[in-house]
Amino acid sequence: MDIVVCIKRVPATDTAIKIAADGKSIDPTGVNFELNAYDEFALEQALRIKEQLNAGSVTVVTIGPKDSKKQLDDALARGADKAVLLSTTEWMFDGAQTAAALAAWIKTVPCNLVLCGRQAVDSDNNQMAGNLAARLGFACVTEVGKLTLENGVFTAERDIEGAREVVTSKTPAVISCNKGLNEPRYANLKGIMAAKKKPFVEQPAQLGARGVEIQALTLPAARAAGKILGNGADAVPALIAALREQKAL
């Protein structure tokens, strides 16, 4: 099975977001970037499927700035066979545009399975898998927390409101991965050395027209400072009174 894993370089989750002077983007000063957390589960699952079948390939791809090479190199070091950087200078927040550009590229390579994280934790769109699948004519299952493959058919489990859904899917498919799917491996020294010899392709992303345009990026209003009601269990009656006064109880 030839697997494509879509990844994204995003600000680390402990980043305090500051808005840039243009009022439409984030100020990158002092921001650490990392591999989107959900994409780690997608990469790990791809490596496990290849190990299970003892055949096929794992290609990691991203659309993003040239600095994304660091995250692609990390994926190679963890075990991916090939990395592709579709380079752009823009922040990819437009889900339809991203999916269209990825679909155009995926159609040019051998691929029976696309794995991605359930969402990138910057734009928080959670829409890439379905959008991509529809453009490729692939099956799709999103926010998967458990996945098994038998005789070319996937059985996936996903959380829905108050229940768990069991979905069967044919291949080719796009599957978006949730936390809890697996325990991702990290790169070891041998992997890092091997990664240096693996194929790395860089080409400009073929971006079509934008579907959405950012008009403004704003920070939420700060919450008013709260009140410490006291110390220990003795403060419980004061808390109950305060909550009743606010009609919170």
């Binding site: 889900g95 339809a96 999916a99 769109n125 379905g130 699948a133 529809a134 799709c140 999103t142 926010e143």
Partner: peptide, 20 residues
């Protein structure tokens, strides 16, 4: 859970724009 799964596919079928 269904909206997140279904709407992006409808948007792609229609080649529209999407925000979630």
């Amino acid at each position: 859970a269904m909206g997140k799964d279904l709407l992006p596919r409808v948007s792609a079928q229609l080649d529209g724009s999407v925000l979630t």
